[in-house]
Design a protein around this nucleic acid. Structure first.
Lengths: 228, 228
DNA sequence: CAATAAATTTAGGCTACACTAATTTGTGGC
DNA sequence: GCCACAAATTAGTGTAGCCTAAATTTATTG
């Protein structure tokens, strides 16, 4: 085990960088300065400067001009932020009347401010959920996270029936659109038509037929539905 | 009405200064640099520097070497923070199992991070409470606050029966002590003895007799109990 | 494989907010 | 009315993070 809760007060910026780098690390390849800059909406030199500081603190490994990887310590911070963010989203939706398209910004600020005690209280009253309202997995308090592999709706062949499990966007307008279309985690949909060349996909959900663009369908993650 | 919600993002420091200055303004007299420094645990020059910035922003009126007063805009910010702090305390105690001696620090961080929307949601599920768990009045969303005048337990003559309404400390150890002594808002107590020269006060609360020091008794605020 | 394009880093600056040391101002006592 | 002391302010530093402009390194491509 790596030194637990050692870091005496990471800044909000540091937490955001590490969380962002974690998100960009899914391929396992080093993450580029410009990708970080784009995600966090900062200039590349600002990112370069922060990379230096984070490397000095042992949170990143940096090969100049090549990119960065999280160290174990850095990943631990990132996953902790992920747990916080997703639990806060689940709490706000479950207990304070938030809708899934409005929770993101609130959680983005609160995740830096709440104590570990409060996070665990929220987890407890929620019954230690494993997924947030978007279907994103919530790491447990030891940093364990089960990233299930889902198939994007865009890649489901015509005729198949699937269950939506996760929606991989935090853009409010997309979330609102998906909600009004009934395309939310837990819903079973059947792919009726599938236009070639990244064309739109036609699905049937709850009796209604929906046409959904390829890009959005890439963000709707599914599993093949078992015979119900 | 003063410009509402004009300020594009006040920093945490600014919010803390204004809240602190508000607390120190109860007499109506100008607040000294050193009082602010002591309250916020900062050096006097740091406070001098911030006073300049806050005056430039129109949040304070500063007479050099004399002290500062909040402007209407500054007071509005301060009262807004007070509302946030006290509603958060009430929410954490009411819904997340916090005790009145542990809420303060959590609220101190959250008050800077929550949105107006979240604050109003918390107020709504709480039923728009007028007091927090310590009996401190919660300003309404227009900044109206009714500061009721209470009498410190220390100044109640022997023989009188009073109801505790408010406890004017945020120190956890004092709060814990008061709670185990049963001296919490809503409790009726009778002053049985009263030692002179700032000596301890003996009270009867719920059948039990308690001896409480003068300094602490200054922070326990009461009203004369009506015949019940 | 050299020239250019793209990505990255360095250089230099700015703001907010903290600090210590030095200076200035106001006040109370004689 | 002056002197000494306390309070306040100014002067000068430092750190975290951000920025733009310039320099450097890597990648592409004719």
């Amino acid at each position: 085990m790596v030194a637990q809760s050692a870091n005496p007060a990471l800044t909000r910026s540091v937490e955001d960088y590490l969380k962002g780098i974690y998100r960009l690390s899914s391929t396992g390849l080093p993450v580029s300065t410009s990708d970080i800059a784009e995600l966090l909406e900062l200039s590349a030199p600002s990112v370069s400067g922060m990379i230096r500081r984070l490397s000095d603190q042992g949170l990143l490994e940096h090969v100049p001009y090549r990119g960065v990887l999280l160290t174990a310590a850095g990943r631990q911070v990132a996953i902790r932020m992920l747990r916080r963010h997703r639990l806060i989203e689940a709490y706000l939706v479950g207990f304070l009347g938030y809708s899934w398209d409005t929770v993101h910004d609130e959680a983005e600020r609160l995740e830096h401010a709440v104590s570990d005690v409060l996070i665990e209280r929220m987890a407890a009253v929620l019954g230690h959920p494993r997924f947030d309202p978007h279907g994103d997995p919530i790491p447990d308090s030891d940093g364990m996270i089960d990233e299930l592999v889902y198939t994007p709706l865009a890649e489901i062949p015509g005729g198949e029936t699937v269950e939506i499990r996760r929606v991989a966007t935090s853009q409010a307008d997309r979330l609102r659109y998906l909600e009004t279309s009934g395309l939310i985690p837990g819903t079973r949909v059947t792919v009726t038509r599938h236009q070639p060349f990244h064309g739109p996909i036609t699905v049937t959900a709850g009796g209604h037929e929906q046409v959904i663009g390829h890009e959005l369908a890439q963000q709707v993650l599914c599993v093949r539905a078992e015979a119900r």
